[in-house]
Design a binder for these strands. Structure first.
Length: 923
RNA sequence: GGGCCUGUAGCUCAGUUGGCUAGAGCGUACGACUGAUAAUCGUAAGGUCGGUGGUUCGAUUCCACUCAGGCCCA
């Protein structure tokens, strides 16, 4: 007779094969149709709020793995907090203004771009950004990231733009904004400022000159040195910047000496003397080291303009070329500018928009700086301060558009003052108050806050929020007050920000605005705000404005590059206006690298796209992968890892399938009270209790890789390998409603309810699939974590089971030997004789009710002493023998012949199976 | 060149204040089962804890240097 129909095999249509690539999009449709995000928030009405404020990705291009990592992490946090019972809204945002988009648009337009008005460029940029917001939104949704996609925040939305202007106005009102000069890349041909990204490096031939700066004889004394013939030697490839020279810069740690060159004496770095000699042919003799304090005391004058050149120090000076002393023109070089700020040196830049000298260098007024180079060299020669000249070819910045060489030139820019009203101090205090994860973020951030210079807020571009400053036509004075800015902010709300470009200036300033000179006619200026300011005020524009949110946020979560970026650009406006940081916690993740630990780049050809992974594996695998990595460091990705994660996924999925299948005839009313459960059931609940607590704790600490680890281990070891394997003898074999079977099912149901929720923040699709498979009408994501009763916590049982599992481990080794010897196949064919080493373990074994089931053998004999034929293992002595008994064809256990077939109707069954069969056939 | 960070089995991660033969899961090999079956179970083999030097009775854990890699500056 075929008894296989009489056993309770797991029964379920829950598919083993996930087929995520197909099933997930269907799930997304259902979620969307059900308005799930809104429903989840509604289900948390009145609950405590948890605000994760989204850092806006740039609306340009498709998303990459970095985006996927970032958004999935955010989503896991939001879903976890929701499971914890919080109301955790998530408003995604996009950064829409800025150079990359403007460049894209203008490059596409080509020559036509020059003819288009700013407002037309802006219109095209807006359209372009809009397109990618939509694309990225769809991509984020596909990852299973829940959020308010109906009403996201866009930095180019009218209300947001108005908020940017308003915030700028408020900060101006508090006295943080000032205008000053700063050097930037400038194309004299196109008459425009250029951003770093628009600069192309190409070879260019420049004059290479060594120039001497005269030292005031009263400032230096040394035996054998004629102080009246003493010079500091410098080297430069831009003679035209010499009229703007205001200082010479030494390295604070290099060795410098006075060298005799004929009748003259030159000061330069020891390390470059030889190189200079060989280039210039100048013999440098009688080296006399010169100490740093002597250098500090030097008074040096400009080579051809009657003024002092200040002696300063900077560690950007190198020994690669030149003299080890750098000529400093703060108006014409980045390093010059920075070191100039430090020493309080003026930012002189006597060059106009077309690259011609101005009144400030009257001697060559109107002369193009590149044309002026040879003239300056000639003049240096005539004045007798030129040591040497030739030409060199080197890499030099060029304009991407006209391909002509660029200059670095100081222009008027708007700045936000950092050291105003103790803002830096307040920022540092706030830095200490914020929780940084990982902790080293605090140090890194602190260092940046301590040293950051004033924030240059203005850009000479088209695609951004205009700085509404204007000029008096009469006296040319610059006019911009809090009143005029706030007036425009209001106006932009009704008329759109583009009014700055389209409307007459008279309509944009408050009525009656008058310049101090009495002028009432104005003209607009067209600088825009740094896009970092746009996103930096998102906490005002979003947290204050969306009714479901609150200022400040609980957490910001971005890549660690944002320590310098968004975390800071968000901090300063917040400190300036509210004296506190807009976040309580700042969590950072590392960068995505390829499987060898190298950065991903197109040129390396090692880029993996999220789309690729979703197509091949599904979003849940990608999400599970994210959770498997310790994202606080850089994370590597490769197909080996993804395959591993896919294997883990299958383990978890099959665990659920097994549970579901074995619960097919179970309902809560059939549950068995805790007190009546068998030890192993209680043990399982104990393990579950701790798994749940530890998993939730790991979520709380944002250690998702520990969540992954714990759950996977639990599924593989506690459940699959131990509990399920042992329980099958009850679940399959016993009568459907046998108390032991109902006990198992009670435990399985608890495991199910706890586990499906614990897994949901990560495996969002699969958890929902499981949940809805079980005829639930709501979403798993509306649930809270399954509460487990404290009575499940049972350390005594745990201790006991631990000891028993140790013995079972021994037994498995013993059985494996027999299997290797081809004496047995399944362990049920074997019998064990066990003598545990410790008395306590012997006692435990003796007290076991289901010892053969636990060891999964047909017979266990407990020996009082170690006996002949036993082998030693870690915790016991064990002998294994092939059972001499007969197999019950139903339960597959082996019994003495006498115990089989007592009932003639069932000659091949053991007593237990006979009993089960006969009783069920009477029903 | 500077600031910060990372480097434990093939992979992903654990390793409490320095102290027993450095752990886990996965993968791999071999095997069992065929009543979780494109599943499940078992056993086993894998590590000079990036390298060198130092402190210490003793270091994966502390210090210095170094190599490789990352982020941010210059």
């Amino acid at each position: 007779m075929d008894y296989s129909k009489t056993i309770n095999l797991p029964e379920t249509d829950f598919p083993m094969k996930a087929n995520l690539a197909q099933r997930e999009p269907e799930m997304l449709k259902r979620w969307e149709a059900a308005g799930l995000y809104t429903a989840i928030l509604a289900s948390r009405d009145g609950a405590p709020l948890y605000v994760l404020h989204d850092g806006p990705p740039y609306a340009n291009g498709n998303i990459h793995m970095g985006h996927a990592l970032n958004k999935i992490l955010k989503d896991v946090i939001v879903k976890h907090k929701t499971m914890m019972g919080f109301r955790a809204p998530y408003v995604p945002g996009w950064d829409c203004h800025g150079l990359p988009i403007e460049l894209h648009v203008t490059r596409e337009l080509g020559e036509k771009a020059k003819e288009l008005a700013k407002i037309d460029i802006r219109r095209r940029c807006r359209k372009y950004a809009d397109k990618f917001v939509k694309i990225q939104m769809a991509e984020f949704k596909r990852l299973g990231v829940f959020g308010n996609y109906e009403n996201p925040y866009l930095t180019m939305a009218p209300a947001y733009e108005a908020k940017i202007v308003e915030t700028f106005g408020n900060i101006l009102k508090e006295g943080f904004i000032y205008k000053s000069k700063k050097p930037i890349y400038w194309c004299p041909t196109c008459v425009t400022a250029l951003a770093e990204a628009e600069v192309e490096y190409d070879n260019h031939t420049s004059p290479s000159i060594y120039v001497k700066f005269k030292v005031d004889p009263s400032s230096f004394h040394a035996d054998g040195v004629d102080a009246h013939n003493l010079f500091v030697a410098i080297w430069t490839t831009t003679p035209w910047t010499l009229p703007a020279n205001l200082a010479i810069c030494f390295h604070p740690e290099f060795e410098y000496s006075v060298f005799r060159a004929g009748k003259e004496f030159l000061i330069m770095a020891d390390g470059l003397a030889e190189q200079m000699s060989s280039i210039t042919g100048l013999a440098l003799e009688d080296k006399r080291p010169i100490a740093k304090d002597s250098i500090e005391n030097l008074k040096v004058s400009h080579p051809f303009i009657k003024r002092e050149s200040k002696v300063i120090f900077g560690d950007f000076v190198t020994l690669d070329a030149g003299t080890g002393i750098v000529h400093i023109a703060p108006g014409h070089g980045q390093e010059d500018y920075v070191v100039g700020l430090k020493y309080g040196i003026d930012t002189l830049s006597p060059v106009d928009d077309e690259g011609r000298f101005t009144d400030e260098y009257a001697a060559m007024k109107g002369e193009n700086v590149f044309d002026a180079n040879p003239k300056i060299v000639q003049m240096l020669k005539d004045t007798g301060v030129l040591i040497f000249t030739n030409a060199i070819e080197h890499s030099y910045p060029h304009c991407w558009r006209c391909k002509k060489p660029l200059i670095f030139r100081a222009t008027e820019q708007w700045f936000m003052k950092i050291d105003h009203r103790d803002m830096r101090q307040t920022a540092l205090a706030e830095t200490d108050r914020v929780v940084w994860i990982p902790a080293w973020g605090a140090q890194r951030f602190r260092g940046m806050v301590e040293s950051r210079p004033d924030w240059c807020l203005s850009r000479q571009r088209s695609w951004g929020v205009p700085i509404p400053s204007f000029r008096c036509k009469k006296c040319q004075a610059n006019l911009m007050t809090a009143e005029t800015v706030l007036h425009f902010a209001k106006l932009s709300l009704t008329k759109s920000i583009d009014a700055w470009y389209s409307e007459d200036i008279a309509n944009l300033v408050p009525a009656g605005t008058t310049c101090s000179c009495g002028g009432t006619e104005f003209e607009k200026e067209f600088d825009i705000l740094d896009v970092w300011f746009d996103s930096g005020v998102s906490h005002f524009a979003v947290l204050d404005e969306w009714k479901e949110l609150r200022w400040p946020s609980d957490i910001y979560l971005e890549g660690s590059d944002q320590h310098r970026g968004w975390f800071q650009s968000s901090l300063w406006p917040a400190i300036a206006l509210r004296q506190r940081a807009p976040y309580h916690t700042v969590l950072t993740h590392g960068f995505l690298l390829d499987d060898k630990g190298k950065a991903m780049s197109k040129s390396e050809g090692n880029v993996i796209h999220p789309e690729e992974i979703i197509k091949k594996y599904g979003a849940d695998i990608l999400r599970l992968w994210v959770s498997s990595e310790d994202y606080r460091n850089d994370v590597r990705i490769g197909f080996e890892m993804l395959n591993q994660v896919a294997d883990s996924y299958r383990k978890i999925r099959n665990t659920f399938k097994f549970i579901i299948g074995n619960l097919s005839d179970f309902s809560p009313d059939k549950a068995v009270p805790y007190a009546q459960l068998a030890d192993i059931d209680k043990w399982m609940l104990h393990k579950l209790y701790h798994l749940a607590n530890q998993t939730m704790e790991s979520y709380e600490k944002f250690e998702f890789h520990m969540v992954y680890r714990r759950i996977l281990n639990f599924c593989a070891v506690e459940l699959s390998s131990i509990y399920f394997d042992i329980s099958k003898d009850i679940l399959y074999i016993e009568a459907k409603d046998a108390p032991s079977r109902r006990s198992n099912q009670t435990v399985l149901a608890e495991v199910y309810h706890a586990l499906v929720r614990l897994v949901a923040p990560v495996l969002s699709f699969t958890a929902e699939e499981i949940w809805q498979f079980n005829k639930n009408t709501d979403s798993i994501h509306q649930q809270v974590y399954h509460p487990l009763r404290d009575e499940y916590d049972n350390p005594a049982i745990d201790e006991k089971m631990e000891r028993l599992v140790e013995i079972k481990t021994d037994a498995l080794k013993a059985l494996e030997l027999k299997r290797k010897a081809k004496e047995i196949g399944t362990s049920l064919e074997a019998e064990l004789v066990i003598h545990a080493k410790s008395a306590s373990a012997r006692e435990l074994l003796a007290g076991m009710a289901d010892i053969t089931r636990f060891f999964q053998v047909s017979k266990v004999t407990l020996a009082a002493e170690k006996a002949e034929g036993m082998s030693e293992y870690d915790n016991s002595f064990i002998a294994v023998a092939k059972s001499a008994g007969v197999k019950c064809v139903r339960c597959w256990n082996y019994f003495d012949r006498a115990q089989i077939g007592a009932n003639p109707d069932h000659p091949e069954l053991c007593a237990r199976c006979t009993d089960i069969i006969t009783r069920s056939s009477h029903e």
